[in-house]
Design a protein around this nucleic acid. Sequence first.
DNA 1: ACTTGACTTAGAGCCAACTCGAAGTGTTAT
DNA 2: ATAACACTTCGAGTTGGCTCTAAGTCAAGT
Lengths: 125, 125
Amino acid sequence: MSTESLTIKQAAEATGLSVHTLRYYEGLGLIHPIDRAGNTHRRYTREDIGWIQFLLKLRATGMSIQDMQTYAELQRQGDETLQQRVAMLKALEREVEAHIAELSGHLDLIRYKIALYSEPVLELA
Amino acid sequence: MSTESLTIKQAAEATGLSVHTLRYYEGLGLIHPIDRAGNTHRRYTREDIGWIQFLLKLRATGMSIQDMQTYAELQRQGDETLQQRVAMLKALEREVEAHIAELSGHLDLIRYKIALYSEPVLELA
DNA sequence: ACTTGACTTAGAGCCAACTCGAAGTGTTAT
DNA sequence: ATAACACTTCGAGTTGGCTCTAAGTCAAGT
C-alpha cells in the first residue's frame, strides 16, 4: 500500500464518512470521479481528502447538498467560475453570521433562565 | 372575540406555526392541553403563546422534539423538577456554545477563501 | 340564517440526507 | 492460496419533523 493514496476504507476513516457515503457523494458529483488503481479500485489523494473535509464544513454550516453540487460543479469548471464561487461564499458568510447571531440570542435566553432558576429567591426590601 | 385569548388560527399567526402543527405539538405533549371555550374550541392565552415561542427557540437551537417533550413534562410537574430543568438548560448551553464555536471556525474559513479568491494575485518579490 | 372556522381520528405522504442490503464478480496483500 | 477488501446496480428502508387529506360533526360571529 502506497503512502501516497488511500483506499476507500482508509478515506472513510480519514474523513469520518462511511464507505457507502463516499460513493454516494461521488455519484452525486460532490466529489470528482476518483482515480482508480488497476482501473477499478478508488485511490484517494491528499487533495481528495482535503476537498471532502471542506465539503463537510460546508455541510456543517447547513449548506444543502444541492448547493454543494453547484459549488463542486463550478470548482470543476476552473478559474472562470471564481466570481460565482466567491458570490456563493459571500452568501453563505451572511447566512452563517445570521445563524450565529440567532444562536447567540437564544444562548442569552438560556443563560437568563438558568440564572433565574438557580438563584436563591430574592429577598424583597 | 375576547382580546384575552386567541383562536387556533390566531395562535398560528402569532407563532408562525400552522394550525396543524399546533395540534400536532399538543398531541405530542409539547404544549399542555389548551383550555377550551364552549368545551370544544381551543383558546390560547398569552402564557400559552409565550411557551410556544420559547419552544420555538429551543427548536432553533437544535433541541430534538424528544428532549422538548421531556422538558415540557418536567415543566408540567412543577417546582420539584427545577433542578432537572436547570441541568437540561446547562447541557443545552454547552451544546449551543460548541455549535457557535464550530460555526465561527467555519466562518473564518469561508472568509479566508473569499479573501483568497478575491485578492489580486500577489506580486512576488 | 349562514358562512367561516374548529373539532376529531387515523393514516398517508413528503423531504433531506443518508444507510443498508443483495447479488454476483473482481482485486490486493500476505 | 486465501482472507479481506472493493466493485457494480438499484431499490428499499430509516429518521426527524412535519404536512395534509378525508369525512363527518359542531360552534361562533355577524
